[in-house]
Design a protein around this nucleic acid. Sequence first.
DNA 1: GCCGTTTTCGGCCCGACTGTTTTCAGTCG
Length: 587
Amino acid sequence: MKNQEIAKIFYEIANYLEMEGVAFKPYAYQKAALTLEGLEKDVEEIYKEGGREALLKIPGIGESMAEKIEEYLKTGKIKYYEELKKKTPVNIEELMAVEGMGPKKAKVLYQKLGIRNLKDLEKAAKSHKIASLFGFGEKTEKNILEGINFLKRSKGRFLLGEILPTVKEVYQKLKSLKEVEKIDPAGSVRRMKETIGDVDFLVISKNPGKVMDFFVRFPGIIKIWGKGSTKSSVRMREGFDMDIRVVPARSYGSALQYFTGSKEHNIATRKIAMDRNLKLSEYGLFRGPKMIAGKTEEEVYKALGMQWIPPEMRENQGEIEAALSGKLPQIIGYKDIKGDLHCHSQWDGGTNTIMEMVKAAQNMGYEYIGISDHTKFLRIEHGLDEKKLSQQRKEIDKLNTKYKILNTKFKILQGCEANILNDGSIDIRDEALKKLDYVIAGVHSNFKMPKEKMTERIINVMKNPDIDIISHPTGRILKRRDEYQIDFDKILRVAEETGTILEINSFPERLDLNAENIRRAKEAGVKMVINTDSHHKDQLRFIEFGIAQARRGWAEKEDIINTQPLEKLLKLLNNYASRAFSRSSNF
DNA sequence: GCCGTTTTCGGCCCGACTGTTTTCAGTCG
Ligand SMILES: Nc1nc2c(ncn2[C@H]2C[C@H](O)[C@@H](COP(=O)(O)OP(=O)(O)OP(=O)(O)O)O2)c(=O)[nH]1
Ligand SMILES: [Mg+2]
Ligand SMILES: [Mg+2]
Ligand SMILES: [Zn+2]
């Protein structure tokens, strides 16, 4: 898939143009790059299916960029870009990664000192060649050196699940300050994005100075990037930045709207305001000098003629248009999940016994849990064979009887997470599968198959009437492994035909399906299930991360099968299996 | 370079902080 490559080139073009001082074009390229980056469908496929016309339908792509994409797909190069690069042979991305360095400074440094990369920059700063340049100075030079050092130590974006505990700690500490009237996490944390670049907090206070003084003295801060009366920014020991914004109570809603983002959502919302001869900023919504909204987010959106938009959806992916026409979907809520169908127990080397998992599930307020241990192909994971599965069945039956006697409604289901082998067969015999309440199948080996083969492999499994759910369908591991090559449109078609359910895996490094694919699945009429893949009872809590992605993917309650009570769930699983069977027997 | 139920041309979000500058450009959110 060449989406990322082309996006990267467009970002670079934007940077080169910005260096030259060209107006507006850089933003056009950036916007197109961002869209390509987030596009789950392969541009090459879009082009093959619909030619240049289809490319033009992508928002932010016009004649000029469509032509460049076409050129890249055909020749592997974009002449315009190659020429820009030849003219200014600078690793601009690397230089701009240094805090405080942008295209304008990079240009001067290249022209005056021939600086082309980070190494050149460090050398020049160390030998004090920068301070004397026009527009630069001692402090700039020092900041550059410091910036380089922090950059070298930086670890990139953090997983939401990895950073959230720290966020909660800081939140509590800030909240305890008496000058803090109200505080909320904002930015990507409030939107529950799968990865977090930095942590943003919004505060109401009548005494911003005090709040800022307290904030920048926080334990664990290793660098203060900036400190003002309304806004400060710091680097934490753990390697991430924190931004804080302080506003008066009357602006809290508009400030929360601003600071929650996303940037693209903000710009689009501000354009709606402009269309109505209004101005929207973090301080409020204004008609001329008159403030007409700002205290709450609801008020701000309402004054713009919009429904309030859940933070997870604020990505400028159509939510603004939907909110304007009152057609936002009723997305799934954080309390709508009635049970978790992907849980591992001690049987396959997980941490907890079935009983311990059950108790944890009950604490979550669930009505059921599905135990889905690995199967025998995965020897390192102590995968269960047919015999073990039947022994496990006996234990689960016993526990269920106990619950019946105790007259609780709670039910334990027995599933398994079987392995999809290279040819799309399963490592457990059919007779054994039929004795389970449901079957999950997932790819756990041989991730690098060519697209056609991998797609065929998964499709074969979906046509198997005994298989109900495909776990982590694209196989990505955040920050570590890309999705495997699949034709997701084809997979969606077959999933719809066979009634196979696709998993939204809530494990922090998976979150697979992602939001964009969830939206595609919903549009294709494919049902999904939100699971945690817990290997420890405490991991049942991960469900909120999966729900957040589902919300960003516009999923409603009825798109997610485990929002249903047990009886309905069983019917859905069974229905789908028998439907799949009747269809596949007609082939 | 892109885009359009007010536009096919004329706009393109709006504001804070810093360092360098004698009044603002650059960078960032
Ligand atoms: N209006 C406007 N708002 C912006 C702009 N840049 C950032 N914001 C707002 C929206 C962002 O969600 C919020 C926080 O900025 P961040 O850079 O921290 O982005 P965000 O938290 O969304 O993502 P992150 O995970 O930190 O990369 O500030 C901008 O250029 N214009
Ligand atoms: Mg930078
Ligand atoms: Mg942020
Ligand atoms: Zn699993």
